[in-house]
Design a protein around this nucleic acid. Structure first.
Lengths: 220, 220
DNA sequence: GTCTATAAGAGGATAGAC
DNA sequence: GTCTATCCTCTTATAGAC
C-alpha cells in the first residue's frame, strides 16, 4: 500500500520493465524456445523464481515482451496528412521507420521472428493494430491517387514493401555485415541506406528520365 | 557394395533426402531450438534413433538442411548479362527470386531465421557464396551505371532491397495473410505482388513523370 | 519480494537386439 | 539399417524458508 500506479508498486514496475527488456534481447537472439528463463533472469539481475514471481510462466513473459515490442513498433506512424505533399509525408514516414530499426534492432528482430513463425503468440491485438495502420495508409494513398499525385501502385503492396525495406537492415543485419562489414549502427552507412531506399521508392532505378521524352507512358 | 553414388547407397540418399526435407519444414516453423528430432523423424516417417543413424546429431542435421536450403536459394541468379538491356535482365532476376519464394517458402523462412539469429550456423560457405553473388551483381550494375543506363543508386544497397522485397512475401506470409487474407500461393495475388514490386523498383511511386519538364534533376 | 532447493518433464543421444 | 528401451542433461516451474 505504498506508492502505486495501476495497482503496482514502483519497484514492481521497475523490475517488470527490467525483465521485459532482458526477455526481448534473449528472445530476439534465440526465439521463444531458445530463450531460457535462466539467461533472462541473469540478464535482468535476479533469480529465476523471482522472475516467475512477476510473470507466472514463460509464455506470459513472452507475450508481455511481445506486446511491449508492438507498442514501440506500431506507434510512430503518427498520421499521414492527406492534404500535404505525398513525397514529404512518405519521406517522413520512411525516416521514422528507419530510425526505429536503428534504435530498436532487437525489437525489430523479435517482431520479425514472431511473424516468421506464424504469428501464433501475438493474439488478436496484432491483427487489429496492424489492420488499422494498413487501412489508414491505404485510404490516404487512394486519396492521393484520386488526385493523380502518385503512381498507380497498390497501396497495400506498397506499405508491405516499405516495411520490408525499412526493417531489412535490422532483421538481416548479420547478412549485411557479412557483405559490407557495416551495420546501420554506423551513422554514415545508415544515411546512405536511407537515401537509397528513398531514391528507389520515389524514382526507381531507371536512368534520370531524359530518354523518356520520345513517347508515352510505360507499358509496365 | 550395391548401387552407389558418392559413397552412399540409393536408399541412404533417399532417406537422407526425406529427413532433410522434414527438417527444413520443422526448423522453419520452430527454429533450431524449437525443432525437435521427434517431430522431424515423425514427419520423415522413421524412428528417432534411425534418424540419428544418418546424422550424428541435431546440429549436423540442421547444417545439412541449411546447406540444402542455400543450394536452392543461391542458385537461380544465373548470370546477369552486362551487354543486355538492364530492365529486361533485372526483371528476369526479380521474377526468378519471386518464383523461389513462392515455390519454397519454408526454405525462405529457414534462411531468414538463420540470418535473423546471427548466421552462426551457416559456416564460411554462406559468406563466400553470398559475397560472390553480391559482387557479381554490383560489377554488372556499375557497368550499367558507367554507360548511363541506370540510376545512381548504390549497387549493394539495391541488391539488398531486391532481396528484401522478393523474400518478404514468403517470410512475412503470416502478416500478409492477416491483412489481405491471401498468400502468394494464390496465383493472382502473386502476380499482382510481382508487378507492384517491379513497378516500384523501376519507376518508383511518383506520378507518371509529366510534371518533371519544368526543371532540373531531383535534389534527392 | 527474494532466495535455495528440488520436483517434473521434455528432448537429445546411446545401447543393444533384430 | 531399423527398431525398443533407456540414460542423462537441460529447462520450466513449484515448495517453502527468510
Amino acid at each position: 500500500m505504498v506508492e502505486r500506479k495501476n495497482g503496482e508498486t514502483r519497484i514492481q514496475q521497475k523490475n517488470a520493465r527490467k525483465i521485459i527488456d532482458a526477455a526481448t534481447i534473449e528472445f530476439s537472439k534465440e526465439g521463444f524456445r531458445g530463450g531460457t528463463l535462466d539467461a533472462i533472469s541473469r540478464r535482468a539481475g535476479l533469480s529465476k523464481p523471482n522472475l516467475l514471481y512477476y510473470f507466472r510462466n514463460k509464455h506470459d513473459l513472452y507475450q508481455a515482451a511481445l506486446n511491449h515490442v508492438l507498442d514501440i513498433w506500431l506507434s510512430p506512424l503518427g498520421e499521414l496528412d492527406p492534404a500535404a505533399d505525398p513525397e514529404e509525408q512518405l519521406r517522413g514516414y520512411i525516416e521514422k521507420k528507419m530510425d526505429l530499426s536503428r534504435k530498436h534492432p532487437a525489437a525489430s528482430r523479435m517482431f520479425a521472428n514472431e511473424i516468421l513463425k506464424g504469428a501464433n503468440n501475438a493474439g488478436p491485438d496484432l491483427e487489429a493494430k496492424l489492420g488499422e495502420l494498413a487501412s489508414k495508409f491505404n485510404k490516404v494513398w487512394c486519396h492521393w491517387q484520386s488526385e493523380n499525385k502518385v503512381a498507380q501502385v497498390d497501396g497495400l503492396h506498397l506499405i508491405f514493401m516499405i516495411w520490408a525495406m525499412t526493417q531489412h537492415y535490422a532483421d538481416f543485419e548479420a547478412q549485411i555485415k557479412m557483405l559490407t562489414g557495416k551495420t546501420i549502427a554506423d551513422k554514415a552507412f545508415y544515411e546512405t541506406a536511407k537515401e537509397n531506399i528513398i531514391h528507389i521508392i520515389f524514382d526507381g532505378i531507371k536512368n534520370g528520365h531524359p530518354p523518356h521524352c520520345d513517347g508515352m507512358a510505360e507499358d509496365v
